[in-house]
Computed example of a mutant assay.
Amino acid sequence: MKINKIVRIALSGSLIGLILTNPRKALDKMIEKNNNNGWNAIYYTTRSESNIIIILIQWLVLFLTLGLWTFGVGY
């Protein structure tokens, strides 16, 4: 029997996320970490946010931080 594992990678958004976050590096780092623990990467996809409340909270955080930071959806 094979056991599956789901891992989420959160990214930062806006100006700080643009400067400090490298999505490819974050994905490679997580895959390497889990491969070292005995897991194999089979499938990955970007996560899309479809909940209107979360989208509104993201816009509110973006507004309150003057466009510097908001949480991203990631992988």
Rank of each mutant, 00 (worst) to 15 (best):
M1N: 12
M1F: 06
K2M: 05
N4P: 10
N4Y: 15
N4Q: 10
N4D: 11
N4K: 11
K5G: 06
K5W: 00
K5Q: 05
I6T: 13
I6K: 02
V7T: 07
V7R: 00
V7N: 03
R8H: 07
R8D: 06
R8P: 01
I9L: 06
I9E: 01
A10N: 00
A10V: 10
L11A: 14
L11W: 09
S12K: 11
G13T: 02
S14G: 05
L15N: 04
L15E: 03
L15R: 06
I16M: 13
I16D: 09
I16G: 02
G17K: 08
L18P: 00
I19E: 14
I19A: 10
I19F: 14
L20R: 11
N22T: 02
N22G: 04
N22P: 07
P23L: 12
P23Q: 05
P23C: 05
K25S: 09
A26N: 15
A26R: 14
L27D: 01
L27Y: 02
D28G: 13
D28Q: 06
D28N: 11
K29P: 01
I31H: 05
E32L: 09
K33P: 00
K33C: 06
N35V: 04
N37T: 03
N37F: 03
G38E: 03
G38I: 08
G38T: 07
W39Q: 00
W39D: 02
N40D: 11
A41K: 00
A41F: 09
I42S: 01
Y43V: 12
Y44Q: 02
T46D: 01
R47E: 10
R47M: 08
S48C: 10
E49C: 11
E49A: 04
S50H: 13
N51C: 15
I54K: 14
L56A: 08
I57A: 14
Q58F: 03
W59F: 07
W59I: 07
L60T: 14
L62E: 05
L62G: 08
L62D: 00
L62R: 12
F63T: 07
L64P: 01
L64N: 01
L64K: 07
L66H: 00
L66C: 07
G67S: 02
G67A: 04
G67Q: 11
L68S: 07
L68M: 04
W69L: 15
W69A: 13
F71W: 10
G72H: 05
G72P: 00
G72K: 00
V73I: 12
V73D: 15
V73P: 03
Y75E: 05
